[in-house]
Deep mutational scan, measured.
Amino acid sequence: NMECRVCGDKASGFHYGVHACEGCKGFFRRTIRMKLEYEKCERSCKIQKKNRNKCQYCRFQKCLALGMSHNAIRF
């Protein structure tokens, strides 16, 4: 039983190089595919399941810091 490295929810698998839940997987995919840019935040918000949708900037930064990558495809 793995935990999502981004928000701590139950991970659904290994997505983009990191154990992640469906919510964070979809969030990362949409951000990359649609080339979304979020308003910069300096607060280093703590991303948890209950508040993961509050600060998209910090959520995406955490995805990147954990090594999530669009190129991380498993063979």
Rank of each mutant, 00 (worst) to 15 (best):
L66F: 05
M2G: 07
C7W: 00
C63V: 00
Q61T: 06
N71I: 05
K50V: 09
H19Q: 15
I47E: 07
H15V: 07
L64A: 05
L66P: 03
E39K: 13
R33Q: 13
D9K: 04
C55W: 01
G67Q: 03
M68Y: 02
K25V: 14
N1L: 04
K25P: 01
K25T: 14
N51Q: 11
E22L: 04
H70P: 15
C4S: 03
R33V: 14
A20I: 12
H15Y: 10
H70Q: 14
Y38D: 01
K62Q: 06
R59A: 04
R5I: 08
Y57A: 05
K46C: 11
M2N: 07
R5F: 06
S69K: 13
G13F: 01
N51Y: 05
Y57W: 09
G23N: 14
G13W: 02
R33T: 15
I47G: 07
K25I: 13
C41Q: 04
K54V: 11
I73F: 10
E37A: 09
Q61P: 03
E3R: 06
C41P: 10
Y38V: 02
M34D: 15
K40L: 10
C4A: 02
F14V: 13
K49G: 15
G8E: 06
G8P: 00
K10H: 11
E3P: 05
C4N: 02
S44L: 11
G26H: 15
C45N: 01
Y38A: 02
N1C: 05
R33E: 15
N71L: 05
S69I: 08
C24P: 00
N53A: 10
K10A: 12
C7F: 01
Q61Y: 07
I47S: 06
C21Q: 02
L64T: 06
F75A: 15
K46I: 14
S69V: 11
E37M: 08
N53E: 14
C55Q: 03
N53S: 12
C24N: 03
K35C: 12
C45W: 01
F60I: 05
I73G: 15
V6I: 13
E37R: 10
A20H: 03
Y38F: 09
S12C: 09
C45E: 01
F75C: 15
R5M: 14
G23M: 12
Y57I: 00
H19A: 14
N1K: 10
R43I: 05
V18M: 11
L66G: 05
G17R: 02
E42K: 07
Q61G: 03
Y38C: 02
N53Q: 09
R30Y: 11
H15M: 09
G26Y: 14
G17I: 01
I73S: 14
A65R: 10
K35F: 06
R29P: 00
R52F: 08
R52P: 15
I32P: 01
K25W: 12
F75W: 15
V6H: 00
N1S: 09
H70L: 12
T31R: 02
H19P: 11
C4T: 00
F28R: 01
C21A: 02
A20Y: 02
Q56N: 09
A11N: 07
C4R: 04
V6E: 04
Q56R: 07
F27C: 02
I32M: 09
L36H: 09
C58I: 01
C24A: 03
F60L: 11
V18S: 04
R52E: 11
C45R: 02
H19I: 12
G23H: 15
R52Y: 12
K25R: 12
D9W: 03
G13N: 12
K10C: 06
V6G: 01
D9V: 06
K40H: 14
Y57Q: 01
A11S: 10
C7L: 02
I32G: 03
C45Q: 01
Q56E: 14
Y16A: 10
G8I: 02
N53C: 06
K49V: 13
R33F: 15
R33D: 15
T31H: 00
N71F: 04
A65N: 11
Q56F: 10
G17M: 08
K49R: 15
C55I: 03
K40E: 09
A11T: 09
F27M: 00
F27E: 01
E42V: 10
Q61K: 10
K35D: 11
K10Y: 06
V6T: 00
K50L: 10
M34S: 10
C58E: 00
M34G: 11
I47T: 07
E3Q: 11
G67R: 03
H70K: 13
K35P: 04
E39C: 03
N51T: 12
K10L: 12
F75P: 15
D9Q: 05
F14D: 13
I73N: 13
Y16G: 12
I47Y: 05
R5T: 12
F28M: 08
K10P: 07
R29A: 15
S69W: 08
G26I: 13
A65F: 08
K46E: 14
A65P: 01
F75M: 08
M34K: 10
V6M: 03
R74E: 15
Y57G: 02
S12Q: 09
Y16R: 04
E3D: 13
S44F: 12
A11F: 07
G67M: 04
R33H: 10
C24Q: 00
R5D: 13
Q56L: 11
E42Q: 09
S44D: 13
C55M: 01
C63G: 03
T31C: 02
A65K: 10
I32T: 09
V18R: 03
Y38N: 02
F14N: 10
R5N: 14
K25C: 12
K54G: 10
A20T: 11
V6N: 03
G67L: 01
R29S: 15
Q56A: 14
K54E: 14
I47R: 04
K46W: 08
F60G: 02
Y16S: 09
A65Y: 06
C63E: 02
Y57V: 03
C45P: 01
R29G: 14
C21K: 03
C7A: 03
K46Q: 14
Q56G: 12
E37Y: 06
R29I: 15
F27I: 00
Y57L: 02
E37P: 04
K40N: 07
T31P: 00
C58W: 02
H15F: 12
H70R: 13
C63M: 10
K10M: 09
C45S: 02
R59I: 01
R29H: 14
V6K: 02
C63T: 01
C41H: 05
